[in-house]
Simulated assay, not measured.
Amino acid sequence: MPSNVEIKAKVSDLTQFAQKAAELSQSEGTIIRQHDTFFSCSQGRLKLRDFMNGSGQLIFYERPDTDGPKLSRYSITPTSDPQSLQVVLSEALGVKGEVKKERRLFLIGQTRVHLDTVEGLGHYMELEVAEDLMEKLGVSKESLVTGAYMDLLLKEHKEI
């Protein structure tokens, strides 16, 4: 299974982070709308990512729920009919929850930098890689978060 190292953190100043990422990537980034449906499964996480344009990806991944950088192992398969696949998987496995977000993707060298606005949670960033880039972008270790957006949304609803 392929793998990468992922770092996720809350972003307190969206504009400042976007400016730094744009400078470092020498681009304004690419906007990607995503609607992720998480399904119940016995191990890891299984989600269907709908790009809201008739295409999507079924993604299975395993990643520890710990603070800081974490190794994520994943398998991805594309789909040209995410809505029908969502119906079948929902009936077969049950839905754990959904995450709707707008992602701004920057490429800084070989590192993918995601600036996400997550419905119901706010602004976050994900790096699919290195601590020196965290430092250049001004991301503190205190702002790192644990778990998937789905976990954060479930936690938010419990605290209300």
Rank of each mutant, 00 (worst) to 15 (best):
P2M: 08
P2C: 02
E6V: 07
K10D: 02
K10S: 07
D13R: 07
F17N: 04
K20N: 10
L24C: 00
Q26F: 06
S27W: 09
E28Y: 04
G29D: 09
G29V: 04
T30F: 08
I31L: 15
I32E: 14
Q34K: 05
S40M: 11
C41R: 00
C41L: 12
S42H: 14
S42E: 14
S42C: 10
Q43I: 08
L46R: 04
K47P: 03
R49G: 03
D50K: 03
D50E: 11
M52I: 02
M52H: 08
S55E: 11
Q57N: 09
I59H: 03
E62I: 01
E62K: 09
R63T: 09
P64F: 04
P64I: 06
S72W: 02
S72M: 07
S75V: 12
I76Y: 01
T77G: 13
T77F: 04
P78E: 11
T79E: 03
Q83G: 00
Q83C: 04
Q83R: 12
S84W: 02
S84P: 00
S84Q: 12
Q86A: 13
V88P: 01
V88D: 01
V88N: 02
V88S: 06
L89F: 13
S90M: 04
E91N: 11
L93F: 15
V99R: 00
E102Y: 02
R103Q: 07
R104K: 12
R104C: 13
F106L: 05
G109M: 14
G109E: 11
Q110H: 15
T111W: 01
R112N: 14
V113A: 05
H114K: 09
T117S: 13
V118F: 05
G120A: 04
L121F: 12
G122R: 07
Y124W: 09
M125W: 00
M125Q: 03
E126Q: 12
E128A: 05
A130I: 06
M134Q: 15
K136W: 01
G138W: 07
V139K: 00
S140Q: 12
E142S: 14
T146P: 03
K155F: 06
K155Q: 11
K158G: 02
